[in-house]
Amino acid sequence: MASQSTPDKNGSKGTWTLKTGLAQMLKGGVIMDVVTAEHAKIAEEAGAVAVMALERVPADIRAAGGVARMSDPEMIHAIMDAVTIPVMAKARIGHFVEAQVLEAIGVDYVDESEVLTPADLKNHIDKHAFKVPFVCGARDLGEALRRINEGAAMIRSKGEAGTGNIVEAVTHIRAITDAIKELGELGPDALETRAREYRVPVELVRQVAKDGSLPVVLFCAGGIATPADAALMMQLGAEGNFVGSGIFKSADPARRAKAIVEATTHFRDAKLVAEVSRGLGEAMRGLSLESIPAQERLAVRGW
């Protein structure tokens, strides 16, 4: 991925280089959903590169139903105090005031997330307006580029959060990486057509075609439950993994967390993945996609 950029002026903060740069530092790592300071410590101890502070993991959000909102700043503070690694938190799609609150609290990354109930059905947050960087979900290249154009400094493939089922994550990461490959083979006219289709400036599409990668870091999310799942996503082109319910909904979170970290680093080493997968106890139960009614699917939120 072409990540080097031109310098901004002396003493500046909140620049594109700094926003995308933090995501560069997270590469090859695992970002774990945590709901308490104690979870956060387990995640840090297991080798997580960052934690996502939220009140309920997606599996519980799914089970609880109702409206899912930004977490209580009190619990986010407690998690920020408990660990030294970066802390991320989620704002609802389009809810720029939740994002302002998270920036004021001092979280290191805001996830404008489909896991929460959307607040705006037309507009995502104008992320350029913030000093704090944003990560956004995407199911395909067009969605990823629209988010980047709005200022997202990191992309995660959406998957279907809270299912422990990797199928959607695979579909989405393949859709993104396949479309990037395809762009590389298109001529100038076709790139312009593609840009119109994606509703983004043609310069952005040309850049992706030329680099063969997104201009920001690409992680995977939504369904990782095992070390093999984590390694699969890395082999399919993710630069790191978000793991939500998969860790703290399993029988032995500390061991599973550590195993997923190791499998993410050594994702091509099947012997090692086999070794760390031994005797981990029960994975989260998981849901088949067919069992989730269309209106309860999270990935379709956002556009």
Partner: peptide, 10 residues
């Protein structure tokens, strides 16, 4: 400080 305090300098 945290990420919002990250900076560039000559």
């Amino acid at each position: 400080g945290r990420q919002v305090d990250s900076f560039e300098a000559d």
